[in-house]
């Protein structure tokens, strides 16, 4: 009798929303605390020390690391370079993704094949193999310059000029527009054909219906892609690490690469942590700005 009561009680507790919710959310809560929250807080603590790998002691140095950031020329340059990279590559990538997705909405039997074709760069772009190919493409005697040569143009020393060196990396990022494209394609499918029908009856042309129907309907997805791609662009590391190693004259010293160098190459862990934190604040600000402005351009269906 008693066990019966206990059993049903246990069952009730187990089935309560609170319990079920936390049981299912447990992996995330555990991971969030262990792999995000604790590292972030530890990182904050290290940011105020002169900690370095291998040394068993560390000293509290107050705000010295943060003060140093303001005078570190390489840091300021890497910040500039990274912002430039983000502001050029993200919009270009989204424009390409949207245009191609729009073009490919045309129903043909080859649609799936075409989408796959354009998705291939996204699929392989993050790999070391493609980064090595990229390095070879833009080398002094690489593929691109041999094309230029055949057209009778002077070769371009991509990686020798710090004004140019960033562009092969930008191009590589834009080249991988496939994943954004697929998300756009999915969004485009959701737009009810009746909207276009109505627009056509009103005499709107392709461009007009794109601007007045497609863009507003897609705006939540544009926002999503914009935020995700911006974050991803801020974190770019492998390309710069493999292709240019940050050169020439730090012309491609992406933020993430400089953090890595300070942490592991120059062995200034504390300083690297301070840089990471600065990065976090910058990213928060930028995301905040995106969300704040989004209110004026993201079109939400009522009741959603």
């Amino acid at each position: 009798m008693q066990t019966e009561v206990v059993k049903s009680r246990v069952k009730k507790i187990m089935n309560s929303n609170e319990m079920v919710g936390y049981v299912f959310a447990f992996p995330f809560i555990f991971g969030f605390i262990c792999f995000s929250l604790i590292p972030i807080l530890t990182s904050l603590r290290y940011a105020f020390t002169d900690f370095s790998l291998g040394s068993k002691t560390m000293e509290f140095v107050g705000g010295a690391n943060f003060k140093q950031l303001l005078t570190d020329e390489v840091f300021l340059k890497s910040l500039r370079i990274t912002l430039k990279y983000v502001f050029i590559s993200v919009p270009l990538k989204l424009v390409f993704a949207l245009l191609v997705a729009y073009l490919l909405t045309r129903k043909t039997r080859l649609q799936v094949l075409y989408r796959s074709l354009y998705y291939v760069p996204s699929l392989v772009g993050g790999s070391i193999a493609v980064a090595l190919v990229w390095k070879q493409l833009f080398a002094r005697k690489g593929l691109l310059n041999s094309i230029m040569g055949e057209m009778g143009l002077d070769p371009i020393n991509w990686f020798g000029d710090q004004k140019l060196a960033l562009y092969p990396l930008v191009l590589m990022s834009v080249w991988q527009f496939g994943s954004s494209m697929i998300i756009f394609a999915a969004g485009l499918k959701e737009i009810s054909p009746t909207y276009y029908e109505a627009a056509r009856i009103d005499g709107a042309n392709m461009v007009q219906s794109f601007v007045n129907i497609t863009l507003p309907c897609l705006s939540p997805i544009i926002l999503y892609n914009l935020v995700m791609q911006t974050i991803q662009a801020f974190m770019a590391f492998t390309q710069a690490f493999v292709i240019t190693a940050g050169g020439p004259d730090n012309g491609t010293m992406m933020y993430a690469l400089y953090v890595y160098n300070q942490a592991f190459k120059y062995n200034h862990m504390g300083y690297a942590c301070a840089m990471s934190w600065f990065m976090l604040i910058v990213m928060c600000l930028i995301t905040l700005v995106i969300f704040k402005t989004s209110k004026s351009w993201v079109f939400t269906e009522s009741g959603d």
């Binding site: 080398a139 002094r140 020393n157 991509w158 990686f159 020798g160 000029d161 710090q162 060196a165 240019t244 190693a245 050169g247 020439p248 004259d249």
Partner: peptide, 8 residues
């Protein structure tokens, strides 16, 4: 060699 060439 400049930086670009040296990288090779």
């Amino acid at each position: 060699p400049d930086a670009g060439a040296e990288m090779e």
